[in-house]
């Protein structure tokens, strides 16, 4: 009962927050001078005033702010995110079309980074002064400090240009036709560099955290007890300590939910990956307000729902969280 009540309250907050996000984003976009009619005229090589006015009228940009805002929120309540001026498509369709590519990229990068990061963290925690430990520290610093677009371009120069192992851009080679397995292999080949680039940030995060928590756990009482029982070092680490040190890492991974969009923007731009990140980047440049707002709304939705679920999951797993309220 308590959980249901908490869920209802949280959901209420979430809806209010979403509406606030909508109004705020819409107002901010509206404050900027110029509009998409200018971008359309740019892509056309210029247009006269009459045509600009016509474009504005067609898209309702000549209406007063409050009318535009009202229309937009009314649309969103009916699950209609509007029509993209720049892509000539409904925004909802655009987002749903681009979502799978981003999910494929981000989830693959996340899962690989999580697995490798934890293993590296654990191994280095056992020998804090060993070579591997230093390597993990270096990797963490490097992965965190190096801008992803730079890492991406360097990887491209090394593995697409100098040694031509991987393709430069896109998600598949559309000039060749083939069956399902050919296509799967093709996509996998296109994914390697973007996944490494994106994964490097996550990997840095997870390996550092796993190393720190593991070292802490290894020093705790129950580990000493386990050792005293005469268990082998591997059993101690992988059966007892690992379970207990994983929870912060998993919490962090849960919070990285929002990275579905934010982390992918630059990586997708560098590798022309046809996902939400590229869409966000290009629609911002084109000042395609409905698309930008749609993506922002969608990101907000993902973050809020993600937090809501994490919160609930923690309450279920650990009764101490949340207390009585």
């Amino acid at each position: 009962m308590q959980i249901l009540q908490a869920f209802a309250i949280r959901s209420g907050y979430a809806v209010i927050l979403l509406i606030a996000v909508l109004v705020l984003n819409f107002s901010m976009m509206h404050l900027a001078p110029g509009d998409v009619a200018d971008t359309i005229s740019q892509s056309m090589g210029g247009a006269d005033q009459e045509l600009l006015d016509k474009i504005r009228a067609d898209y309702g940009l000549d209406q007063p702010f409050i009318v535009q805002l009202g229309r937009y929120i009314g649309g969103v309540l009916q699950f209609d995110l509007g029509f993209s001026f720049f892509y000539n498509q409904p925004v909802t369709d655009l987002i749903l079309q681009r979502l799978p590519a981003t999910l494929l990229l981000v989830i693959t990068a996340q899962v690989l980074a999580l697995l490798i990061g934890v293993v590296m963290g654990v191994i280095s925690a056992r020998r804090p002064n060993g070579m591997l430990s230093h390597f993990v520290t270096f990797l963490a610093l490097f992965g965190y400090a190096a801008p992803v677009f730079w890492t991406g371009i360097l990887l491209l120069i090394a593995f697409s240009l100098k040694i031509q192992w991987f393709p430069v851009a896109g998600m598949m080679d559309v000039s060749v036709e083939g069956g399902f397995w050919f296509r799967a292999g093709d996509i996998a080949r296109h994914m390697v560099l973007p996944v490494i680039t994106l994964g490097s940030i996550f990997l840095a995060l997870y390996s550092r955290l796993a190393r720190a928590t593991m070292m802490e756990t290894l020093g705790s009482d129950f580990v000493r007890t386990a050792k005293a029982k005469g268990l082998s070092p591997n059993q101690v680490v992988y059966k007892h300590a690992l379970k207990n040190s994983l929870s912060p890492v998993i919490t962090l991974a849960g919070l990285q939910f929002s990275a579905v969009i934010s982390g992918a923007v630059l990586v997708e731009a560098v590798f022309s990956w046809p996902g939400l990140g590229t869409l966000a980047f290009q629609s911002i440049i084109a000042r395609d307000t409905p698309t930008i707002l749609g993506i922002l709304f969608f990101s907000a939705l993902v973050v809020i729902v993600g937090n809501l679920l994490t919160d609930l999951a923690l309450r279920l797993i650990d009764p101490r969280v949340g207390g009585k309220g």
């Binding site: 900027a32 001078p33 110029g34 998409v36 200018d38 971008t39 740019q42 440049i285 000042r287």
Partner: peptide, 9 residues
């Protein structure tokens, strides 16, 4: 900030 801003000016 972007093309539309300049275009308006």
């Amino acid at each position: 900030a972007d093309f539309p801003t300049w275009a308006k000016r």
